[in-house]
Amino acid sequence: MSSEYSVELKGLNKIYSNLLKEDTVALKDINLQIKPGEFISIIGPSGCGKSTLLRIIGNLDKPTSGTISYRDGADQQMGFVFQDSVLLPWKNVKQNAEFPLVIQKKQTKENEEKLDELLELAGLSEFKTALPRELSGGMKQRVSIVRALSYDAPLLLMDEPFGALDALTRDHLNEELLKIWQKTKKTVIFVTHSIEEATFLSDRVIVMSARPGQIKEVVTIDLARPRGDVTRNDPRFAEYNKYLRGIIG
């Protein structure tokens, strides 16, 4: 099914059946319309079904009921950034980043040039031949992001990509991610635990509640772009954070 929205979710439910315990209702009646080019964050308490929702959008898991439609139909191209970077240890930075192009047989000169630009943008130009074991956690995650962008999929799904990083690195990578997003005009769905991160990055923040996992509220973040240090010092930034913290409880 195709849609004018980048992604459209209608009446999505996900129930995990378990022989020993009661069934887990991981997602209940999720309805969501995401516009092309939008930056959406999903936030909520641990176990509320954020990863489940993202995996269903990424076609890695099937919903128990409900429908998903993508702008490009069933064979929608997507990028996915996992919490742990999932790099192949025998490939260097460049080879890991271009892995999707190899798999999809898209190693054109144009795509290779674009990849070089992305590596440059992510500050990885000097580390092209480094192996994953030689990289810091933040660098690995950058490679993982460049890899997800390398084949120019219009939809980017990210599951707590910076969750394992320290606050300084995280802030820094958030700004870089926004730069890349502004350049490439992707639709981004970003799962996070951090309220500040969600506010800083997003056009809209989806707040979920736990058991059953439902959408509690959708908050539109009306802060000017491009965002940076100025945004973080804006009193309205603090207000949004306070408001979101209030809803999550």
């Binding site: 990424g58 191209q77 990028g79 996915f80 996992f82 742990d84 999932v86 892995f99 798999i103 084949y151």
Partner: peptide, 17 residues
């Protein structure tokens, strides 16, 4: 790791790949 297979699925890789 399961996510390595998930990555391949996201990339729409074929079984032999």
């Amino acid at each position: 790791e399961g996510n390595v297979y998930n990555l391949m699925k996201i990339l729409k890789a074929r079984r032999w790949q």
